[in-house]
Design a protein around this nucleic acid. Structure first.
Length: 720
DNA sequence: CTGGGACCCT
DNA sequence: AGGGTCC
């Protein structure tokens, strides 16, 4: 239905637009004429693509400089996902199996890379760094960034006098860069300067090396970036577009053409890029439909008018693990709990409140249907969502595990054998706090922590709080003024260094509070009583109302005990009274397993609380009366001497900004927030206002209200 | 013995 | 919900 060709009307502009870049290689002169009122996409853009060298390996080498000297492989499960150049010299390649790699290079040193925390943090630091020069930064994975520096270049161009002798920095594709006259391509030449400066900044501030590509669109910038591999940059001139596309060894090399698409093309007899270039569009349309056909053809031609869309904060957070075999419900439950625990921690730091939860599995199938994943998702009950966001998520994990198991059983028959090879948990539909109920959306996530977000920012006087998404910005960075900033905290890696894992600190900082502090008296009527068919756990009838008995039964015994500990039970109306000392778990033992995630945060908190019991088994006062208790009495004071939240105060502030918290902020921070609120358009997050017309890899991310997105982003930038 | 994420389109 | 793409 929506396929109906003619929707004409408003698409007109976009249609025309998509031709701007399509005019094969229009000369600069003719392009200028389009400038008049023309749309968002300048006739000729200057696009940069940054691609870090063996990213994970670099991060590990920064964390442990000794690794620089040895062949290093980053291992996830049985795969070397990437390796340093020492290892590459010895024949190790990306995505090589550990077995093969060890064979090629017996001395290969392996570092596990399944926990992405450090990579993620460094990745966002990089994006932040780039954004401080120009807000138009789009991430592609953890180690690549596109950047539209057109405005910046135009500005420089205006300042450049004819007599200035601009030359290209780095390589120029298919040329000896000394030979090419920069004056023939002044913008690209200046772009190469910007790229060089940014690579330099990346190196000096983050200690990372990488490649850059300079071209007129994303596709070409990305392709050309790889021309000279480690730590170099290359510019592509329009006259060489045909060359670079034509030289690609196969269609698969075209970004945007994946395995499946390549196969379908091959079925049409197309194997080389040129094949596709020459293939009649009409025939292509028959196979792929209009938009896709045009897109593919354009890609083959090196034409790509897709804008650099600022990425902003992620739209979902997920965590997953794969394994050879999982076939019991108990294992599944434990794995889900493990995944959820760490995911919740991340979600909590993010500050936004997820509205949707999704569970994904991959089943083993002999007929190696490769991997098809199946998933089920559901809305997250509001009270659960709030627990994630507001202080300790505590039993949020319990309820989410319960939710997850329900979803699980929608896919996997309770009474049938199964064989899973992967489980993934995902939070999506992330809403800024306060939006949940009011549907309005606000900035409150900014409160989660921080207060010194800007620290790692570089730059000139009036930095750049990304407040100008319009792309019209540029002001910062008069030429080189920028990089002079007295080098900041972080180590550049030549030292044995601290590896500045502000990250870990970051995570734990706020975790001090006793377990159930905020838990609001669960008033839910749910069937807490529902008959107990399983006598296995005698205490079942005393379970918290929000704990699914069936799930509970499957929990590891010590976790069960923990859940029944006084700290928890005290908050269960009508349940707590009886013998307090109950289960008391004297020696829950420190960690029985050397630190699986499985007992992460909340559970850990419980353990800590339990461990505070003195040997006699008698609860200490600390344990006995978690500060949260006072909330029930209306007291409201925490150990920090700071009033605790009392939701309901929506007065002068957007969403659920707590006036108390607000009042404690530094004055300038307050001012900043206030001004941000004032500017708050109704804009925000229309979950789906997709424009049909756009052709290529359109992302169309809403550049959400000014400060909002930027604020959210801060969390992903190194706490430093 | 093919990782862990995140995105988009249908 | 599933499939595809990128890294």
């Amino acid at each position: 239905m929506d396929n109906s060709e003619e929707e004409m009307e408003e698409d007109e502009a976009e249609w025309n637009n998509s031709f701007v870049d399509s005019v094969p290689y229009s000369t600069a002169a003719s392009d200028l004429s389009l400038n008049k009122t023309s749309g968002p996409t300048p006739a000729h853009r200057v696009i940069l693509h940054f691609d870090l060298d063996c990213f994970y390996a670099q991060v590990e080498m920064i964390r442990n400089p000794a690794l620089r000297e040895v062949p290093l492989g980053i291992q996830q499960k049985y795969i070397i996902v990437t390796c340093n150049y020492v290892a590459r010299d010895q024949g190790v390649t990306k995505l090589m199996s550990v077995t093969d790699a060890k064979e090629k290079c017996p001395q290969l040193v392996l570092v596990k890379g399944e926990d992405l925390t450090h990579y993620r943090e460094m990745s966002y630091q990089l994006t932040e760094l780039l954004m401080s020069y120009c807000p138009l930064v789009e991430r592609l994975g953890f180690d690549e960034n596109f950047m539209d520096v057109t405005k910046m270049v135009e500005r420089r161009l205006a300042e450049t006098t004819e007599s200035d002798n601009v030359s290209f920095k780095g390589h120029v594709y298919n040329h000896l860069s000394a030979d090419v006259k920069a004056s023939d391509h002044p913008r690209l030449a200046l772009g190469s300067h910007v790229a060089a400066e940014l690579r330099d900044a990346i190196h000096s501030k983050l200690g990372l090396t990488g490649c850059a590509g300079v071209a007129t669109n994303k596709l070409l910038a990305k392709l050309v970036a790889g021309s000279f591999k480690p730590n170099q940059q290359t510019t592509l001139l329009p006259e060489n577009v045909g060359d670079i596309m034509g030289r690609l060894s196969g269609l698969r090399k075209v970004p945007g053409v994946g395995h499946q698409t390549a196969k379908r093309l091959q079925a049409l007899g197309l194997v080389s890029v040129k094949d596709l270039q020459l293939f009649p569009l009409n025939d292509l349309v028959k196979e792929f439909g209009g938009p896709s056909a045009q897109r593919l053809k354009n890609l083959a031609l090196g034409v790509d008018d897709s804008p650099v869309t600022p990425t902003g904060a992620p739209q979902s957070l997920s965590d997953e693990d794969s394994f050879k075999k999982m076939s019991s419900t108990k294992e599944v439950l434990e794995k889900i709990q493990e995944l959820l625990s760490s995911l919740l921690e991340r979600m909590h730091k993010d500050g936004r409140q997820p509205q949707t939860f999704r569970l994904t599995i991959r089943r083993y199938s002999a007929t190696n249907k490769w991997f098809s994943r199946e998933s089920r998702q559901c809305p997250i009950p509001n009270h659960v969502g709030q627990k994630i966001t507001s202080d300790s998520g505590d039993d949020a994990v319990v309820q989410l595990v319960s939710l997850a198991m329900k979803l699980f059983h929608k896919m996997v028959d309770r009474s049938a054998a199964f064989h899973l090879t992967l489980i993934n948990v995902c939070f999506s539909n992330l809403q800024t706090r306060g939006a949940a109920v009011s549907g309005k959306g606000s900035i409150t996530s900014f409160f989660a922590h921080s207060s010194s977000p800007r620290k790692t920012q570089i730059v000139s006087p009036q930095s750049q709080d990304a407040s100008s998404q319009s792309g019209t910005t540029d002001h910062q960075l008069s030429a080189h003024s920028v990089i002079t900033q007295p080098a900041p905290p972080q180590t550049t890696g030549t030292t044995e260094s601290p590896c500045s894992s502000g990250a870990e600190l970051y995570g734990f900082k706020r975790k001090q509070r006793p377990v159930v502090a905020v838990k609001n008296p669960p008033l839910q009527k749910e069937s807490c009583s529902t008959a107990r068919s399983d006598p296995k756990i005698s205490v079942t009838h005393r379970l918290p109302p929000n704990v699914d008995p069936e799930v509970f039964r499957l929990l590891p015994e010590e976790i069960q005990k923990e859940l029944l500990s006084p700290a928890y039970m005290n908050f269960l109306p009508g349940l707590s009274t009886s013998s307090p000392a109950v289960v008391n778990v004297p020696n829950v033992t420190k960690h029985k397993s050397p630190q699986s995630f499985s007992d992460s945060q909340n559970i850990k908190d419980i353990k800590e609380a339990v461990e505070k019991l003195d040997p006699s088994g008698r609860p200490t006062t600390v344990n006995q009366r978690p500060e949260g208790t006072s909330a029930f009495l209306g007291e409201n004071v925490t150990e920090e001497g700071r009033p605790s939240f009392s939701r309901s105060s929506d007065c002068d502030f957007p969403g659920n900004v707590d006036p108390q918290v607000f009042s404690e902020l530094l004055p300038d921070v307050q001012r900043e927030l206030m001004s941000g609120w004032k500017q708050q358009k109704p804009v925000l997050k229309t979950p789906s206002s997709r424009k049909p017309g756009r052709s290529l890899m359109s992302k169309d991310r809403k550049a959400a209200g000014k400060g909002s997105q930027a604020n959210n982003l801060f969390k992903y930038f190194k706490p430093s």
